[in-house]
Design a protein around this nucleic acid. Structure first.
Lengths: 360, 360
DNA sequence: ATGAAAGCGCTAACAG
DNA sequence: CTGTTAGCGCTTTCAT
């Protein structure tokens, strides 16, 4: 049997504290100081009606004045409950970069807000995009009640596997066939189609497409693009497809490459506003006037799109609605309801980067 | 005494699961299936040399195949340890908005990366900017080993109080006098001075200042602005100060108001790139040419600043260095080292929104 | 090399 | 209304 002194010594050693460091306050300390049992403190702090009003306020005041905070880990363990959601952002080992696209970052903020409103905490983590199923460990280990994955990448199969195991999981991304898991996302096909229709309607004929078609969301936008092209009997030139990641620099390189290779194009449809803005900037540097020579349409409608010069025509995806829908969906799942994937409507926002060609 | 059946029933009820729901796997399950004790499983999974090689791999395989993940909460409780850092973003109840400025969002990403590298998890939460000390609850309750606060707002006093209580805390913000807590931030005075000097050097005389001078960081930039003005014996016109929050719309309104009130100005120094871009957009709408009529300097150098049209002159703060410094600082604190506040150098990036006035 | 048992900080059933 | 006690899932000492 270890005596108290021994326990405290072990604690110090294990936590690497020096002997001067103060021990963290716990319920038994409050109990001792208040001259009651821990049960009473527990009840008092949880606002139980079982405890005397006077005692309760006395204990509450004492706890507050000592900056005592309940140990949520121990409480959760005892209660078999948990108010934490793991929010997971895949990262690409290849490009290896930190998440930086404003759209995803804002989505994170929106999810955080929705979670906070429900009184849940958010454990933010990154996982290798090649091993999305690693995200489930937070659920399996009881660390989180469920998982919100921002970005589905490839590996539809891994996600299906998690869903089959009944891991509470909601993914921001595209609704795919044979999908067991729940997604929330914009209507990518419609978005791609609307953007392309808009450009074609303006009289644009050779529309470059910027986006990594390996990603399901982008693939659907690309399908919408192809569909619009086909409807108007316009040929698709494979050289106009630039399968690039969501990184500004890649858009610059792609546009520059089109120009250098003298591949004609009179419009750009970029799969994010950042890519679009980078494209506009590159076009300008090369003496191509936007929107007259080349019209540009972006995607997401981030805040800055409206301030851009020229203000950017884009496809709006509502971040507020998206973030909230992700959270709503997860909670529905937790309550045992089988949720269908949600496809949120997108909207074409026509601003100044898209006009008819001059010779029309 | 409760029997096993009773326990399981209670568990189901409390967690709101239906009777069909599977119980989460735990160590005792693995032990039973492997025909060993939980001690052995524990040792096997933690790679202890005390367990037979063959047994270890057998247990590891079994655990993996069943998707067993150790319960980190229970483990932490037992071990009195923890690998979680609380990252806290203050929100303003007044403006009440979700965090949206790209700079802070990117900083979050950078901190997440640095934490991930060290094998720590990040608990992301928001607290009311008026009660920053509420952030300490995560530490007091043993939820997190320390706290990173992104944005110091007013309430220097509350933060000092936490530091006095020896809560491991690092704040992104300004280095203030009488500061007991550790901050990491850019050199705001130098940044404000450099921006203003640059504009004055160009021949600009009436420089509007956009930013909430109630915030310590902005106050220091403003002090730099005043200093530069004074050095050149330029008067300061109070009407040119627009004390606005970091919200694009506020910049639009502020610039519009200056124009409507016919207050002359030939330059704008905005305390964030978003404010600067919004200003440029508003100026253009009012027929003022940027940079000729009005030159503009932003702050932060977010990615988009370079793609803006015209490319935005701005003060760069390195997000990568900042995020890493915050994390480094926190770990130093945890190791008992008293860290001094870090003031990171800023850099004036001259692009195209700032030129000499036309009549010079 | 393995198991039995105690206890991390907390809550709730049960007994006063 | 309050205290005693068992136990949440795990690790570790001690005993074998």
């Amino acid at each position: 049997m270890w005596g108290r002194a021994v326990r405290m010594e072990r604690r110090r050693r294990e936590s690497g504290e020096t002997s001067a460091a103060k021990r963290r306050l716990q319920m038994s300390d409050i109990a001792r100081l208040a001259g009651v049992s821990t049960s009473t403190v527990s009840r008092a702090l949880s606002g139980s009606a079982l405890v005397n009003e006077e005692t309760r306020t006395r204990i509450a005041d004492l706890a507050r004045s000592l900056n005592y905070s309940i140990n949520v880990g121990a409480k959760n363990l005892r209660l078999q409950q948990n108010r934490t959601v793991a929010v997971v952002i895949p990262y690409d080992t290849a490009s290896g970069q930190s998440i930086s696209d404003p759209f995803f970052l804002r989505m994170l903020g929106s999810v955080a807000d929705a979670l906070t409103e429900r009184g849940f905490e958010m454990l933010l983590t990154r996982v290798d995009a090649e091993h999305l199923n690693a995200a489930a460990a937070f659920y399996d280990g009881g660390r989180a009640v469920g998982i919100i994955l921002i970005g589905q990448w490839h590996h539809h199969d891994q996600l299906n596997e998690l869903a089959a195991r009944r891991v509470p999981l909601v993914v921001w991304g595209a609704h795919l066939a044979q999908q067991l898991y729940c997604t929330v996302g914009g209507d990518n096909f419609a978005g791609g189609e609307a953007a392309t229709e808009h450009l074609i309607g303006l009289g644009r004929r050779r529309i470059a497409f910027l986006g990594d078609v390996e990603l399901p969301e982008v693939a659907q936008r690309f399908a919408g693009y192809r569909e619009a092209l086909a409807r108007h009997r316009l040929p698709f030139d494979r050289r106009l497809l630039a399968p690039i990641a969501f990184v500004a620099e890649r858009a610059r390189a792609a546009v520059q490459s089109l120009i250098d290779r003298k591949i004609e194009f009179d419009a750009v449809f970029a799969c994010s506003d950042v890519l679009a803005m980078s494209s506009v900037s590159t076009l300008r540097e090369n003496g191509r006037h936007v929107p007259t020579d080349v019209s540009v349409v972006g995607y997401d409608d981030i805040e800055m799109a409206a301030f851009f010069n020229p203000p950017l025509t884009t496809i709006r995806q509502s971040i507020e609605i998206g973030g909230r829908a992700l959270v709503d969906c997860l909670f529905a799942l937790l309550e045992g309801r089988a949720e269908l994937p949600k496809v949120l409507s997108t909207e074409l926002i026509v601003r100044a980067t898209s006009v008819p060609p001059p010779n029309r």
